[in-house]
Design a protein around this nucleic acid. Sequence first.
RNA 1: GGUCCCAUCGUCUAGGGGUUAGGACACCGCCCUUUCACGGCGGCGGCAGGGGUUCAAAUCCCCUUGGGACUACCA
Length: 495
Amino acid sequence: MDAVRVRFAPSPTGYLHIGGARTALYDWLLARKTGGQFILRIEDTDRSRLVADAVQDIKDSLRWLGLDWDEGPDVGGDAGPYFQSERLAVYHQYATQLVQTGKAYYCFCTPERLAEMRKKQEQAGEPSGYDRFCRELPAEEVEKKLAAGEQYVIRFKTPLTGQTKVHDELRGEMLFDHQTLDDFVVLKSDGFPTYHLASVVDDHLMGITHVIRGEEWIVSLPRHFLLYAAFGWEPPAFIHLPIFLAPDGKGKLSKRHGATGVSEFKAKGYLPEALVNFLLLLGWHPATDQEIFTLDEAVAAFSVERINTSPVNFSLDKLDWFNGIYIRKLSHEELAKRVLPFLQKDGLLPDPCPPERFAYLVRLMPLVQERIKLLSDISQAVGYFLREEIDPPAPELLLGKKGTVAETALLLTEAATVLEKVTDFNEENLEQTLRALAEKLQIKPGQLFMPVRVAVTGQTATPGLFELLAALGRERVLKRLKQAVAVLERAGAES
RNA sequence: GGUCCCAUCGUCUAGGGGUUAGGACACCGCCCUUUCACGGCGGCGGCAGGGGUUCAAAUCCCCUUGGGACUACCA
């Protein structure tokens, strides 16, 4: 495929949505695969819905995912500006051109009249759409209203008859009757363009060859083809991606279905590698049955032809699996780095983190790496390592299913005694010592190990006991064993 | 209501005239094992329905049904 120019054109009305992230990913992949350009364009033409931090969140999220843009905010480019709000003169020029060539007209209808019109249409069960009240206004009247400073919009003069044939790379040709289209607004009364005008003009001016966007735009395709024809321009290739449905399959994915923003996934402890891999396979499938992809591998394997057209249920199960896979791929050092902010947020490590504490964190990584699914699981997983003391475990937890208070207290006391004497407090010695103790007490190893585990961690699910004890260090182990014995003695006295 | 899109296990999907309908996640079981996890092995589970076309249909066509999108001076 020849080098391609693609754009991701989000509207800064909120954070970067997970659906938008997939669109950006496919854009980026296509650009990288063909040696073309990936352009970021901000479609800030709706002043009323503008969100202050949105652009920052979009840029941060894109970078976090590893999707760098060749032209756009912060990096510039020859086809700018890349904020539509800075291109108003351009849209005004083309809108005016449309009017002058008889392809569009001024409309002075008030929002009130439009609302009333819609109401009547609804009541009558008629198809909705502008009733073309201003379409044939005499030129003198238009001049008069304009001169009087009346508010106006510019509407496209959709042909009354005939049809427009549109083309989508995935679905092929689609036919739309002009009768089902109305005279849509291209320039709003505040001087800003609508999406239809702005995107068509910009895509043409910026030399966009492939438009990748959500399926919800298919219905608007005929308008866009009409605009291209009106300007005498060749339309780019259109690729409409299947929309994301809510996990239950009922309706479009939205905020009420949990996290939908890329930054939320980041905050929850998902790795960008995992999110990208997950998104990659949501609507696209390689020719092989490979499932794990680096960004580079994805670039090599990606092809537009293998994008799917059926709607996708956005279910998170597989994302968790991907996250585990990628967590296990990281080096101990790198994992520690990624996990650090979560520990700092939970107050388990200071910010900044002193080197020796970080080194200890790295030392802990092999113990927990295959046990956490989310980076945010880390506090639960290493809390008892990072704290000097732990809360005394509940007696029931120490006893397990069939232990008695007296027996367990004895076990733990014995354990403390032998552990105090271990010469070198390492994994191997610890295992030898404790297995020997179990044998001496004539109990199964597990009967000894579980109470010890609970005594020193407060949890029943932990990394291997001996590596854990070694990482904890003799002092804390003994202290916690004694604390547990005290808990049991107190429980024994009470009953 | 109108216009348009879509339809293979619960989910993501492969398969596009002849397959025991394949894989992954999830779930269940077994193995490994001091717990948890990882890993290994196995299992459960699907072509929405009806008509055609054809020697042969998950696959092509039509209808029905179901789901979804759009229906703004939002994108």
